[in-house]
Simulated assay, not measured.
Amino acid sequence: MKAFFRFLYEIIGSPQPPADTPVYRDVIFPNIGLLNIGLSLALVVVFYYVINRAMGVATFNKGRHWGIFFFLNAVLAFIIAIWQANAQQATEHSYIYWLATWNAVLGMLWFFVFSLLLRRGSTNASTTPF
């Protein structure tokens, strides 16, 4: 699992400064990767199954409503990456913000993929985002 997240997050470059590389590879990358996947899955479940199926809110099933959750997922993914880097006491560096931005992009990707997989179970939003 660490190798997968290492590959995924080192696409943007190696961690800087190099002295922090083991912390990023062993702790930060797996943490933010798993949190990102979990957050994306949770928000998709909330949108499709809680709001649009269990609650039956027929007015919250448009593309713009999906976009709100999509954007919220990206913002939370950005914050999670910064929080994890600070929690592990990584050296303050611009790499953290590049990592957070990349994590937000990956969060959007995960959210989109989970949306495609789980949207059919929703009674009101089965065609959202398309």
Rank of each mutant, 00 (worst) to 15 (best):
L43A: 03
I51K: 01
V44L: 04
F7G: 09
L72T: 10
L72Q: 06
V113R: 01
R25G: 03
L99D: 09
G33W: 01
F5G: 09
S126N: 13
T123W: 00
F114H: 05
R119E: 02
Q89T: 14
S40G: 13
L117E: 05
Y95R: 08
I51Q: 01
V75Q: 02
R53I: 02
I79Q: 00
R120W: 01
W83G: 10
V44H: 02
A3D: 11
G38L: 12
F4L: 11
D26R: 13
Y97T: 13
I28T: 14
G107Q: 01
S14Q: 11
N124K: 13
G38C: 12
Y48M: 11
A58R: 06
W66I: 07
P15M: 00
N124D: 08
I12G: 05
N61F: 04
R64S: 14
F70Y: 15
N61P: 02
A104M: 12
W98I: 14
A74D: 10
F47D: 11
I68Y: 14
L35H: 02
A87N: 13
A42V: 11
R119S: 03
Y97H: 12
N124S: 12
I28W: 00
W66M: 10
P30C: 04
Y49M: 13
F47K: 03
P15G: 06
F71Q: 11
E92T: 13
V27P: 00
G63S: 04
G56T: 00
L39H: 00
I11S: 07
G38Q: 09
R53Y: 08
I11T: 11
G13V: 08
F114I: 03
Y97A: 10
Q88K: 11
H93N: 15
G121D: 01
P15K: 02
P15C: 01
L109I: 13
F71C: 14
F4I: 13
M1G: 14
F114V: 08
R25V: 14
T101N: 08
T59N: 02
S14G: 03
P18S: 02
Y95K: 07
P17H: 08
Q16W: 06
A74V: 05
T128R: 10
F114A: 09
M1Q: 09
D26Y: 00
P18N: 02
L72I: 09
A3Q: 10
T123Y: 05
E10I: 05
F29E: 04
E92W: 06
Y9H: 09
F29K: 06
S14T: 07
T21H: 04
I96R: 02
S115T: 13
G63C: 01
F60V: 09
Y49N: 03
F111W: 14
I11W: 13
V105E: 04
N31D: 06
L39S: 03
M1V: 11
I12W: 03
V113Q: 06
R119H: 08
L116K: 15
I11F: 08
F70Q: 08
F7N: 11
T128S: 15
G121M: 07
P129H: 12
I37K: 00
A77E: 05
L99N: 06
R53T: 15
A58K: 11
L106P: 09
D26Q: 14
M108W: 08
L116N: 11
N31W: 04
V75E: 03
L99A: 04
V23Y: 01
N103G: 07
N103T: 14
F114C: 09
T21W: 01
T91W: 05
I68H: 14
W66S: 12
I82W: 00
F4D: 01
N36E: 08
N36H: 12
A74M: 15
W98F: 15
G121N: 08
E10F: 01
